[in-house]
Design a binder for these strands. Structure first.
Lengths: 137, 137
DNA sequence: TCGAAACATCATATTAACATGAGAATAACA
DNA sequence: TGTTATTCTCATGTTAATATGATGTTTCGA
């Protein structure tokens, strides 16, 4: 469903949410805890920072933190840069002749399913995915 | 949503369904009509034949035909070899700790959405996608 | 029996996703 | 002011999906 890049992003954001603290969290810690290649994760987190999902600080004691409270952060916001998951195609096959105006028998059923997926990512927040308690590093 | 390979497969099957005739249909005709690379499509159709979705015949006047009536052929059957679309992951992130037994807040909502996607592919048939009349080659 | 038309198959090329490595830039702190 | 820990950034490597090209195999029909 999600590309591995998008899944990494989501897992990392979730880790930051579950392990919130005063100081920023190092990439190395997140990478090790989640089993994600460190340099690759570094690039992903940097992109999330550029999107305003995270804040990054450089230098000693640097690292990443959530830019906003988890209940204000939708899964779509985290994932949209890496996966075009919420882009609704009215026709499963991308055919113009199968549109709302001239729909095949399956058109409306597919559209309904597709919209449910979009809605899930749009309306579910990181807080909804959080564990009850922090996970040890 | 679908890989391009799976989309090619679905489009080709649909073309064969809409253009059913006594004689088999050549790969070249399908490829040209749908704008799909011929050799690549040839490989895909061959795989569909091995899965029992199509029948192939070689030699002069050879080609491909649907092996079963379109209303007996689910989209899942066409697509499953190329995309693992209907594999339900109970957790969006593949975490074992987020299962039916120990579910996070979003678990059930995600599972419901995921099952709707599976059901769509399992229960929708090629006949449901067919145009009212045959499309000219 | 031979040639043409078609699928079957193998080898290779291209592209994008995924991943690694090395060094530059930055900030804290002794 | 220098050392160290960290992010930032670029260059490169690897792998899988996608695509192309060339050749083999089968069948029909003159």
């Amino acid at each position: 469903m999600l590309s591995s890049t998008a899944e990494y992003a989501l897992k990392a954001v979730l880790y930051l949410a579950n392990n919130a603290r005063e100081q920023p969290v190092r990439v190395g810690e997140v990478a090790e805890a989640l089993g994600i290649p460190q340099n690759y994760l570094s690039k992903i987190l940097h992109e999330l920072a550029r999107d305003g999902v995270l804040t990054s600080s450089r230098g000693k004691h640097g690292g990443f933190q959530l830019a906003h409270p988890p209940d204000k952060l939708s899964l779509l916001t985290v994932v949209q840069r890496f996966d075009r998951i919420a882009e609704e195609r009215s026709c499963l096959l991308g055919r113009p002749q199968c549109s709302d105006r001239h729909a095949c028998a399956a058109h409306w059923r597919w559209k309904a399913v597709s919209e449910q997926v979009s809605t899930f990512f749009r309306e579910t927040t990181v807080a909804d995915l959080m564990a009850g308690e922090a996970i040890a590093a």
